[in-house]
């Protein structure tokens, strides 16, 4: 029973132009997704510094997802390509450090894809929940 009660903590970085608007559309259409997902708005997915993700895992996040515009559709022309390459590197490093691949994800969600946003979040939250709590990167100094 305890497994069912466990609620993961998920940080979602959403680009202002596509995914954040996609999240708004999911809201407009009343498409339910787990409340474990907390969104942080960034101007572009390429604004997400790997440090933010490390910090989130250190502070006890169980999963981090980065959402941007589809390749080719970036509001700033090329930002999402940087994201794609940076995160590929970061995620493989995190994997090496013991943060399972399933806890990190990059997704492309456009402003018109409210349903995709909700479905993606639901799927990600389920995957992360099945992995259980993230312990490997938690900074013990942050614990009170």
């Amino acid at each position: 029973m305890q497994v069912n009660e466990y609620k993961p903590l998920i940080v979602a970085f959403c680009c202002n132009w596509c995914s954040y608007a996609g999240a708004d559309l999911a809201g407009n259409n009343r498409l339910n997704y787990p409340a474990d997902v907390k969104i942080i708005r960034v101007p572009c997915s390429c604004r997400v510094n790997p440090m933010f993700i490390l910090r989130a895992f250190q502070r006890g996040a169980d999963g981090v997802i980065i959402c941007g515009c589809h390749p080719g559709d970036c509001h700033y022309t090329s930002g999402n390509y940087y994201t794609r390459r940076r995160m590929a590197l970061l995620f493989s490093m995190l994997d090496y450090l013991g943060i399972e691949r399933e806890r990190t994800r990059v997704e492309w969600v456009s402003a018109a894809e409210g349903a995709k946003f909700a479905a993606t979040m639901k799927d990600f939250a389920e995957k992360v929940a099945s992995l259980g709590e993230n312990k490997r990167l938690e900074d013990l100094r942050c614990k009170k």
Binding site: L9, V11, K38, I40, V42, R47, N49, M51, F52, R55, A56, R59, G60, A61
Partner: peptide, 13 residues
């Protein structure tokens, strides 16, 4: 960076 870090911290508290 500080602002976004602060948001991350507030969410992960």
């Amino acid at each position: 960076s500080k602002q976004i870090m602060a948001e991350v911290d507030a969410i992960c508290k």
